[in-house]
Design a protein around this nucleic acid. Structure first.
Lengths: 208, 208
DNA sequence: ATGTGCATGTAATCAGTTACATGATTCC
DNA sequence: GGAATCATGTAACTGATTACATGCACAT
C-alpha cells in the first residue's frame, strides 16, 4: 500500500493536481513505485475523504483543476508510516522463476533470455544513475521546491536519504546485469560440456 | 502471472496435490514466488479446465485427494513461457520508498528502520544460501525426483540454472544488507554534521 | 484545423490477501 | 482423547491493470 504513502510524500513538497502526481510517478517516485493515473485519481479522493489531503479548485481557462495539498493529519500519517516497521512483503521474483527453469529452453533461447535480462538491468542501472546525478546536484524541480520550503539544517538529510536509496539501487542493478551476463556464460559452458560428453560417448561406444 | 507457471514447473517434477504444491511454495519456489493455498486450489482448477494439468482422485483412507499431473499441453505451455521475453513488470520497491523519506523520522527512528532492513536482508541471505547448498548437493527431495525422471545429460543444466539463480539472489541480499548498514552509518553521519553546525551557530552567534 | 499536452474520470477485469470453514488421518 | 498434519475449499475484500471516454488549452 505504498501508493497512498507515495502520494502523501510527494505532496509534502508542494500542492499538486492528479495530473502532476501522475507525472511524478513517471519520473521521480516512479523509479521506486509505479502507478497509472487511473489508480491515482480515485486514491486522491479517498485520501481527501480521510482528511489526509485537501482539494482546492484552481481555475484553468474556463475549466477548473483540483489541486491537492497535504493536511496536518496527512503529515502525521507520513510520520507514522515512515517509522512503522513493515512486515516484509510477499516474494515476487518473476525473472528469477523463469531463469530457474531454463532447462526447458534450448541453449539459444536461454542465452536470449539472459541477454534480455542483461539489457533490462543495464537500462535500469542507467536510469538510476541518471536520477542519482540529478539528486546529487539537487537538480530536480521537485527537489528544488522541497529544499526551498525546508529549514536549511534539514537539507542534508533530505538529499542524503534519497541519494543513498538510488546509489543502492544502481549498485543492485549493476550487479544484476553482471549476473545476467554470467548466465549467458553458463549456457555456453553447459553447451560445451554436453558436446564433450557426447563426443566421448561416440568415441567410446558402450558395450551394448 | 507466475503462479500459473510456477505450478506447472513444479508439476514437471512429479504429480502433486494442491497441498503438496502449497508446501513447495513454502520451501523451494517459495524463495522466488509465494502463494497461499487459497490461491493455489482455484488456479489448479483453472489449469485443469485449460487442459494444462490433469487431476486423478487418489484414495486416502475413506476420503480421496486430487493429484494433479502435467499434460503435454502443459509442458508445451512451459516451453512457450520459458522462451517468451517478458515485458518488465511494474516497479515495486516498498522498502526503498520508505528509506527515501526518512527525513521525516528522528535519527533514532531512521536507524531502527535501517537496522530492521539489515536484519531482514541478512535473514533472506541466509535462507538463499541454505537453499543454494541444498541444491548444489542435489539434496532437496524434489530435485532428487526431478533428476531421476530426467536424462543424465540434462542433469547439469537442471541443477546449474537453479544454483545460478540462488547464487545471484544470495549475492543481492548480501549487498542489500551492506546497504542497510551503510544507512545506519549515514544517519550517524547526518546527526554529527547537524550537531557541529549547531555548535558553530552557538559559538558564533549571528549578528541579529 | 490539428496535434500535443493538460486534465479527470469510469468500468471491467484480474490478481492477491485475509478470514472463515470443515473434516479426515496419524501419531502420542 | 487430543494435537498435529493432511487435505480442500469459499467469501469478502483490496489492490492493480487495461481499456474506454471526454474535453479544454495552446501552439503551429
Amino acid at each position: 500500500m505504498s501508493l497512498r504513502e507515495s502520494l502523501l510524500c510527494l505532496l509534502t513538497a508542494r500542492p499538486m493536481t492528479g495530473y502532476d502526481l501522475a507525472k511524478q510517478f513517471d519520473v521521480s517516485v516512479g523509479h521506486l513505485w509505479q502507478a497509472p493515473h487511473s489508480q491515482i485519481y480515485p486514491e486522491l479522493r479517498r485520501l481527501e475523504e480521510d482528511g489526509l489531503v485537501q482539494a482546492t479548485d484552481v481555475p484553468r481557462g474556463r475549466a477548473v483543476k483540483r489541486a491537492y495539498s497535504i493536511t496536518d493529519a496527512g503529515r502525521a500519517e507520513v510520520a507514522r508510516w515512515v517509522v512503522e516497521i513493515a512486515p516484509s512483503s510477499r516474494v515476487r521474483e518473476a525473472d528469477y522463476v523463469k531463469a530457474a527453469f531454463l532447462e526447458f529452453a534450448t541453449p539459444q533461447q536461454a542465452r536470449a533470455q539472459f541477454r534480455a535480462l542483461h539489457d533490462h538491468y543495464r537500462a535500469t542501472h542507467a536510469s538510476y544513475e541518471a536520477h542519482l546525478r540529478d539528486l546529487e546536484a539537487a537538480g530536480t524541480a521537485l527537489m528544488q521546491t522541497r529544499l526551498e520550503a525546508a529549514a536549511p539544517e534539514d537539507h542534508d538529510a533530505i538529499v542524503a536519504f534519497k541519494t543513498h536509496v538510488f546509489r543502492g539501487l544502481a549498485q543492485r542493478a549493476a550487479m544484476q546485469a553482471i549476473w545476467a551476463e554470467e548466465g549467458v556464460a553458463l549456457v555456453d559452458h553447459l553447451e560445451r560440456r554436453r558436446a564433450t560428453a557426447e563426443a566421448r560417448r561416440a568415441g567410446e561406444p558402450s558395450g551394448i
